[in-house]
Design a protein around this nucleic acid. Sequence first.
DNA 1: CTCATAATCTAAAGATCTATAGAACAAGCC
DNA 2: GGCTTGTTCTATAGATCTTTAGATTATGAG
Lengths: 245, 245
Amino acid sequence: MSPHHESARPRPSEPTGDPGTADPTDRPWLDTPVYEQLSRLGKALSNPARLRLLDLLLQGEHTVEELAAASRMTVKNTSAQLQLLRAVQLVTTRRDGVRIHYRLAGPSVVEFIGRFQGFAEQTLADLHVELTRLWSQPGGMERLSVDELRERLARGGTVLVDVRERDEYVRGHLPGAVSVPLAELRERMAELPADADVVAYCEGPYCFASAHAVQYFAAAGRSVHRIDGGLAEWVRSGGDLVPEE
Amino acid sequence: MSPHHESARPRPSEPTGDPGTADPTDRPWLDTPVYEQLSRLGKALSNPARLRLLDLLLQGEHTVEELAAASRMTVKNTSAQLQLLRAVQLVTTRRDGVRIHYRLAGPSVVEFIGRFQGFAEQTLADLHVELTRLWSQPGGMERLSVDELRERLARGGTVLVDVRERDEYVRGHLPGAVSVPLAELRERMAELPADADVVAYCEGPYCFASAHAVQYFAAAGRSVHRIDGGLAEWVRSGGDLVPEE
DNA sequence: CTCATAATCTAAAGATCTATAGAACAAGCC
DNA sequence: GGCTTGTTCTATAGATCTTTAGATTATGAG
């Protein structure tokens, strides 16, 4: 505590007993580490790799190795970034033998990530431009909200296609979805009932695999949409996932 | 673009026309600067001084000089941090003669700051501990929600006391509040009607001037509370502010 | 026009963050 | 016990961020 704090001006004598720490006429926010603490959350969100990891974890538990592979980083670096996310309680871990599985710390984290991204999309002009550019690419436009998807599923006549890699599908997918990884799409398109409307999805709002899928289907003359926000938005809206085939 | 991207594996031939940029079987998120953009918002929130500036701006427009004084930073540094906040569209400026007034870019920013802080409070264990410690100090406990405040104001018999500095009060305060800066509180306590319940407030959730005020009033044997979240929470809940006396 | 003031721009030192390498640790298998 | 694998810890070089100082711009006053 600085001498300035102690003696700069006559403090009003206290009512009864010592009210605590700082002279109340001094701006007291400086004496608390509150903003220091708040900034830790900001720091955790200040790095593209960490934001990417959080998005990957929206799909469910992953080991460090899996996350490293999916985010194209070294295991060491991935581990280091995950430690950082764990330090601010955004993720937690579970040990299973020699592997360590990371997952988001809870539903409030899922919700917060959505709000963070949503706010960023509306407020950052450059991001808005970038997303507009991506959506305006062929296949990017046919967006379907999760609510609309639910209606269609209730009506029937819709086939849900999960275009992520098979291992992601196995980990957890939308109920009723069939797995057709993007790389296999061309040769397997015939498997899908010809009269059904297709709805494709991938992991989240920034994955455009489903947009590519839309193109393939559209080129084949089929009715096709993609889920806006992908699997992440489904989870966020309270939808559950099912594992395995 | 790396040679690996170009030729590593046979890409599925395209349906009709070029679908665009990247090989869809390559993870496409790497080719978009989306996470780079998102991280800019995180970066803006990764520094305690900037978070403090945002909180100050919740009270309304301020010039660079005022913000520098309130946050105890040099004008140069304050300006630099404000530029950064402006670059991500969290704040905007208005020139008035030789002065430049900064303000939050819109209601969505106000809301987002609240959500960011709220989430940080519930998720960061250390912050939670710190706030619990502050609230458990004398005067910290008698918290009153904005909703409860509205009820009391409707009922009458409550006197609202703004314990911030006079200039902040002049800039904008809760309708019906009287200005009694904390430094003057002791000598001016008699001004307030003896039978009224007192509700004190200051700028936001991390300002404890109102907690100190609660102590003074309580020691004088008066019924007293402080607004939980302060003026910031009032604004966030849709309440408006009035300027001048 | 000259001067004063509020704020910004530029440059640079110091602090912090990122990413990698090498060593270390923990669990399971032989 | 030793060996292997998945992950973390420690140290460190390179990159980025923060803060200040000095020069510069923009506006208004005389």
